[in-house]
Nucleic acid binder design. Structure first.
Lengths: 354, 354
DNA sequence: GTTACCTAAGTAAGCGCTTACCTAGCAGTG
DNA sequence: CACTGCTAGGTAAGCGCTTACTTAGGTAAC
């Protein structure tokens, strides 16, 4: 409660020099067991919590890494914010960092405030994991100039920093092929997220690849756009139905939230899933299992992505000059009911890394 | 990429003293517009990111606050981890911290590692929000001795630190009363979380209060315990059914995950919700809306809790000697279908703060 | 023309650690 | 017994900022 005590107080209290206190705390060598005890008990007695700032300054290493992610939606409006998967990434990063003895600092960039926030965070950490879209390419580059950065995104842009991502294009290709080969659907619609999102584009590309591979007509663009939100998915589904004489056999949807919204739209239109129309999502959020019918979807290993990006970052901090790395983790299609499959909702099909 | 440049480099580069550079960066006064420009462009040119450690040392304020939460489940086992609401709390804390110009450090205590982790985090921050159960009372006390701490929990224990929590007892009382008064149920069961969790106890206490208030028999203890997990809820529901000749009218359940598990059990037992038996949960997780029937539950303002605890913490850091504070936020019952109500799933009933 | 003030800017002393370098004591060698 | 090699421990110089205290001009007041 009173001002934190310092290493000097502890040294005096235990009758040794600060060097010895430091050595004991850092668990080094060069002191006897007795001394060790004396120091430790003095520290406990004084309730000494070493200053991380001082240590960081002296060691040139704060022991902190940062995680920057986007917070969509206006901070006043409450609704629709960062997608849920961010939480998983955070958890994964926390886990890896803690395991390595570091701590993780999180910060959400909102709208245009990104630049300032990023610099403020950068100054407090030894390195930064930046989620896609949380920073302009420019700002990213200027930060990366002086702080180790790894980008976590759906596909590697042309940045020159370390990259970690999931093969979402492959995942989209996989579900689509499942729909074609396993179920024989031929008439498809695709509902995407925001048109400009690289994530959206990757998923659509995977869908298109599968269509092409099966010799089916390849659409030039998604049938509708749902902004990655549940409400948007509902609207998009209505739009798809309105645009056609008869509903498609199946619709591949850019994420689970939108797919859940689409289910609402289909219920309203008196179409049954999957009997009248099949549906797939993307991300495998918790609700995907609970919704009826349970949603067939593509799982991205969010937690693993968080862990891997931390590992890559820590490596990079360790040796700043090693060559740029790029790791892509495989995705998995999770087969449940909404695609027309039946049985227990546990069918998980593996995808190999590419 | 090369070693981060320092304030000295910037000072030299722009032909001023470090004091002036510092003043410009801190946005103080005592320099001309021309100087300001010179400094800023020198900084940009060198890609200077000030050292947070050095600044923290000099200012005796790191500009970082910590959030400590429990990660249940063994780190190997993957499944069942920190309850989902933690994510919401994190988001809230992040928001409040960023708004105040601070950053937040997160760390999950796993098993017995708590003590060490807590000290490591404490040394890096100016203050700490500690979620219930992430630290032993002892460790909490010893940390709180030298670092400002606010506890975020379901009810204020007898710790002598600032406290923030939600009125979960009141929430439990409210749903139970709803079941009694609105629906006329008289025969109840209660499925709780871990017996020793204060959270569990509070919720059960609220349930008991409502029963007593209605002149119904007050059970001495929960009918079954489900450990706050979906699988546990399923088992507990089976146990409840097995223990009775005929199923209760309604069962009040300690959280949503268990309630969802209970639904599975009821489906297996060919009992219909809410026709044959009504159900309520607690927490209002995302899946509560998607499950069929949609789950009537009690919402805790997790995000607000995160924000408030940060505010309280920052206040405390500002004036270490002001009297201990304790803030309790109201909960809200969210009426959906599983209790027997019908219509749109939007019925939200307000609860006043107590 | 003095004197009193104000402003822009510099000087340098910390902030609380770590660690390279040094010292003293002691055991082991030849 | 002189010498070497270890080990436990001390000294003090930073680490990169902030800020109290100064200083040098310039301006306003008399």
């Amino acid at each position: 409660m009173t001002s934190r005590s310092t290493i000097y107080a502890v040294a005096r209290h235990s009758g040794v020099s600060t060097a010895t206190v430091s050595r004991v705390m850092r668990d080094g060598s060069g002191f006897s067991a007795t001394t060790r005890e004396r120091v430790l008990s003095a520290a406990a007695e004084l309730g000494w919590v070493p200053s991380g700032s001082a240590r960081g300054l002296a060691m040139r290493r704060a022991g902190i890494v940062g995680l920057l992610f986007p917070d969509l939606g206006q901070s006043g409006g409450a609704e629709e914010e960062s997608p849920l998967y961010v939480d998983e990434v955070i958890r994964g990063a926390e886990r890896a960092a803690t395991a390595a003895g570091d701590a993780v600092l999180i910060a959400a960039t909102r709208g245009s405030s990104g630049r300032q926030l990023a610099f403020s965070v950068a100054s407090k950490v030894d390195g930064l994991v930046v989620l896609a879209r949380s920073l302009s390419t420019q700002d990213l580059a200027s930060i990366a100039r002086s702080v180790p950065v790894v980008v976590l995104a759906s596909h590697s842009g042309r940045h020159r920093v370390d990259f970690v991502g999931a093969d979402s294009r492959g995942g989209a290709r996989q579900v689509t092929s499942h729909l074609i080969e396993e179920h024989g659907y031929r008439d498809f619609a695709f509902i995407s997220g925001p048109a400009r999102s690289p994530d959206s584009m990757e998923r659509f590309a995977g869908f298109a690849e599968a269509m092409a591979a099966a010799g089916l007509p390849v659409p030039g663009s998604p049938d509708a756009e749902g902004g990655f939100t549940e409400a948007g998915g509902e609207r998009a589904m209505h739009a798809v139905l309105a645009a056609r004489i008869r509903p498609p056999h199946a619709v591949v949807i850019g994420n689970d939230e939108m797919a859940i919204g689409a289910m609402t739209a289909l219920r309203a239109a008196r179409l049954r899933v999957p009997t009248d129309i099949a549906l797939t999502g993307f991300d495998d959020i918790a609700s995907a299992r609970h919704v009826r019918p349970a949603l067939t979807t593509v799982r991205q290993p969010m937690r693993d992505l968080g862990e891997r990006s931390l590992e890559v970052l820590l490596d990079r901090i360790g040796k700043p000059t090693s060559p740029r790395r790029s790791v892509v983790l495989p995705t998995q299609v999770v087969v449940r009911r909404s695609c027309g499959c039946r049985g227990r909702s546990t069918g998980v099909r593996d995808r190999r890394a590419r």
